[in-house]
Amino acid sequence: MIVFVRVDDRLIHGQVVLGWGRVLKPDRYVIIDDEVAETDWESELFMDAAPEGANVSILTVDEALKRFEEGIFDSERVFVLVKTPGTLLELVDKGFKVDKINIGGLHYSEGRERLTENIYLSEVDREALRELAKKGIKLEARALPESEKVVLNSMVI
């Protein structure tokens, strides 16, 4: 069972593990990112970063879709993490079912425009969010469980 889908350019880190993990109590973190999945040292880094007792899978988009379809994680509480809205759009376009997405950290770097306090978007990110919003998926910005929820749909369309 997928309990949470989050876009966060840091993937597994303090806010995710301590902030959200404490509330959602996932059995498994599933990182979906082609580049990370294909880079051994980076995969190991995130395996190490995960809290004790939680399982971690680091998968490409296609691998992830296959595993979800096979129902391999059905008995677990799964926390899905992607780095970019683009990855999520690709997942959705290929059949991934989701009705609500948490937009966590998309940090500032050159060329990104500020949308909210924690969210800076590149043109590509904005376009992906627009497409996701058009599909009726609720885009909710919230850094931590106790943070204020901001619905982004009207801001990106």
Binding site: L11, I12, H13, G14, W41, E42, L45, F46, A49, A50
Partner: peptide, 16 residues
């Protein structure tokens, strides 16, 4: 400061 945090993953990335 925190093993498992972004400070840790980003430091390793920089100097691996």
């Amino acid at each position: 400061d925190y093993f498992g945090g972004s400070t840790y993953t980003n430091s390793i990335r920089a100097v691996r």
